[in-house]
């Protein structure tokens, strides 16, 4: 159960450390949104932050990205770290004419072939000339993912990457995220308020409610009393779903997934 109480996880990280935060504290107008938060993400691993709405998940992400000043603690980034970011709410009004290709090249200049390759990788190669504001929920998220990939990131930061996507689409998206992590050998930090699918697609789960309640492998976290207290009845469902798949990979005694590069848990095909 060490895996559960040690917020940074117990086993050695699968790869080089990409980003590490220690003792993070963020306050808005005297109200503490985050306190004593430690978190690390290493190359090749998928870390998911789960927590109820308003638990500080997006604030944590924005702090790690350097968008939110912190009141205590510090964030270390690997020198020269490139981050691909998929923000939580990105809506383009119909009043702005913007093609998908143009959206992908807003801050970086990439040639047409590179853009099309990135879109093809996330399964939306046919949308290069579509107007951004008419995309469906799933297409929208895949375009955002392609945009993040264009930067050749060492670390992908995905804030609610399956929002607006139906349940079957969710599973496919998490599968795609797993494929991307393996192919690009990048670390992934994901934020989610849903439990079921995301936990099965994850190496390490951090359960956040202003502070870190528990952290570790998905299986270890689902057994943790703090987690069950936080999510109540929904937690049981996640456990069932996770258990259904936990045969697909093996753990060390301490709970770390063995060789995550080759033996990542499959997303459920529920």
């Amino acid at each position: 159960m060490n895996a559960v109480t040690d917020p940074s996880g117990d086993a050695g990280p699968p790869g080089e450390r990409l980003i590490a935060a220690e003792g993070l504290e963020v306050a808005f107008g005297g109200r503490r949104v985050l306190e004593h938060v430690d978190i690390t993400v290493s190359a090749g691993e998928i870390v998911t932050v789960i927590g109820p709405n308003g638990s500080g998940k997006s604030t944590l992400v924005r702090t790690l990205l350097g968008l939110q000043p912190l009141s205590a603690g510090h964030v270390w980034r690997k020198p020269g770290l490139t981050i691909g970011y998929v923000p939580q709410k990105l809506q383009v009004d119909a009043i702005m004419p913007l093609t998908v290709t143009r959206f992908l090249t807003l801050t970086g200049r990439h040639d047409r072939a590179t853009v099309e390759r990135a879109l093809a990788e996330t399964g939306v190669g046919h949308l290069a000339d579509a107007q951004f504001h008419v995309l469906s929920g799933g297409e929208h998220q895949r375009v955002l993912l392609a945009r993040a990939l264009l930067r050749s990131p060492d670390l992908l930061v995905l804030d609610e990457p399956v929002q607006g996507v139906d349940f079957t689409g969710e599973a496919a998206l998490y599968e795609l995220i797993g494929v991307i992590a393996r192919r690009h050998r990048c670390g992934i930090l994901m934020v989610s308020h849903d439990l079921h699918v995301v936990m099965a697609a994850t190496d390490r789960v951090v359960c956040l409610n202003h502070h870190i309640c528990c952290a570790g492998t998905p299986e270890a976290v689902t057994h943790h009393p703090e987690y069950r207290r936080l999510f109540g009845a929904r937690a049981a469902g996640a456990l069932a779903l996770y258990s259904h798949h936990h045969d697909h990979h093996h753990h060390t005694v301490s709970g770390a997934v063995v060789t995550p590069e080759t033996n990542r848990p499959e997303p459920p095909h529920a």
Binding site: I83, L106, T107
Partner: peptide, 19 residues
């Protein structure tokens, strides 16, 4: 033009990418 457009589409994303 380019940085303003990027900031108009999404302020945080543009900032995270150095705008």
């Amino acid at each position: 033009w380019r940085p303003l457009l990027a900031a108009t589409v999404h302020e945080d994303l543009a900032r995270a990418e150095g705008v």
